[in-house]
Amino acid sequence: MVNINATLIAQAINFLFLVFVLAKFAYKPLAKMMEDRKNKIASDLEAAEKARTDAEAIQKECADKLAAARQEAAAIIEEATKAAQAAKDKAVADTKAEQERIIADAKAAIASDKKAAMDDVRAQVVDLAMAAAGKIIGQKLGTDEDKKLAGEIVDSVMSK
């Protein structure tokens, strides 16, 4: 059962032949493909990592821009509010001024009308008084001096 003979040499040759054939024709393309795959996976992973960092950068940029836009919008709103408030204040002030002017005008008009009316009343009262006094003393009163005197009397009566 344990005979060492020429089979040993033949088997060694067989095995070396097998090693040669497999290494030459079968093993090389397989190893190359495995190497290629390793490289491809490595480069794919690298690309994925790069894409991820890029996406993160873009996301950060978007967030920054959004925050800036929000800030700008808030500033614009504040400014607009201020402008509106100013416009409102101005309108109120203008209205008040106009109102006061109208009132003043009206008062002035009323005063002048009153004065005109009083003057008129006074002239008539003077005439009336003079006519009455003339009738009483039987003499016609019409000189400037008479008018002046009557006027003084009327004035003193009216001012009481």
Binding site: N3, N5, A10, N14, V21, A26, Y27, L30, K32
Partner: peptide, 30 residues
């Protein structure tokens, strides 16, 4: 002296291995 049974079986193993590796690597895909 050569053990023919051993030789025959060795050749079968060799052919089997060569075929397996050649078929596996002939259209090696990624």
């Amino acid at each position: 002296t050569i053990h023919m049974q051993t030789m025959l079986m060795t050749w079968i193993v060799m052919i089997l291995l060569i075929l397996l590796f050649v078929f596996a690597s002939r259209n090696a895909k990624l």
